[in-house]
Amino acid sequence: MTKTIRQSLLTTLFMALVVSACSSSPTGRKQLVLKSDAELEQEGTRQFRALQEQVPLVKNGNTIDFVACVADAIVGELEGDYADLYWELAVVDQPDVNAFVMPGGKIVVKAGILGIVENQHQLAAVLGHEVAHVTAHHSNERASRAMLAGVGIDVAAILLGGGYSNQTRGAYEALSAGASLGIMNPFNRKQETEADVVGLEYMARAGFDPRESVALWKIMNEKNKTNIPEYMSTHPSGETRIENLVAQYPKALALYNEAQAQGKNPNCDR
């Protein structure tokens, strides 16, 4: 096979992957989903079981009930296939200020974040955000982007390097080094912003005050001051995050008021 034909085939494959995998996220953003949700859900369940066996879990019933109450209220607002998922919760006895949700509805909350949140509304902001990562297919999208980035870098390296050679390897390494800053990091920030928007809606629909999301991020800013420039981070800066959340107040507060009128008034506080 000649170099020209090989380059043409790789380029065609690259474009076919892009075109065939286009879909829309909950906020209307174009996204790429190449992997099977079922495959990721199975992996999420496997990782969740391993976590339950290998890390210490919180035993305090009041703490577990507090987190479970907020999580149940958020999950109760989901529709379609996500409402039918078997959602599970693990509260991990570790000091990390962190929480995440694995594909398949496996919620993990680390005890450290419970020392940061001041009330049920702020925990709802955390869990709404993390649940939104699942319902927006962000895990699938990230895996797909990683696959696609590998193909794209390979194609570009061959075109720039002139074939499979030492020159190509140099081009590949240069492109790979820049991929996280130029492609993956900005993409991840878009996901984080989207999860903030969708998560804010979830918490408001469940009857939690969306204004507490901003209060939470003010606390987080004080706890996690950093000099890392935003363009080098996978997350928006705290200030950017707060501005984006405040911009969503009109819609979120309307949903919150509607939920309150419907009698949705969670009573989860410790």
Rank of each mutant, 00 (worst) to 15 (best):
H133M: 10
Q7V: 13
G150V: 12
G178Q: 14
T168N: 11
G178N: 08
A179R: 10
V55D: 04
G115M: 08
A136S: 13
G61D: 14
L32K: 00
G161L: 04
V197S: 06
L200Q: 09
L85M: 12
Q47A: 15
S237F: 00
Y202R: 03
D154A: 14
N224W: 07
E243W: 02
Q52P: 00
N244P: 03
Y249R: 11
T12R: 06
K264T: 12
E43M: 15
A252K: 01
T4L: 11
M147I: 13
L255H: 01
L57A: 11
Q7K: 12
Q191K: 13
V198R: 03
P95V: 14
P236Y: 05
A143G: 05
Y231W: 11
S144M: 05
I242G: 01
R169A: 15
N98Y: 02
A125R: 02
D37A: 14
I116P: 00
G178M: 13
A73C: 12
G182V: 09
G76K: 04
K218S: 12
V134G: 02
R142I: 11
G44Y: 06
T168D: 12
S237I: 03
Q52W: 00
E53Y: 01
I228R: 12
A215W: 02
I153L: 11
T45I: 12
D65Q: 13
T135A: 01
K110M: 15
N62M: 10
V131I: 15
D196W: 04
M232P: 00
T135W: 00
A16C: 10
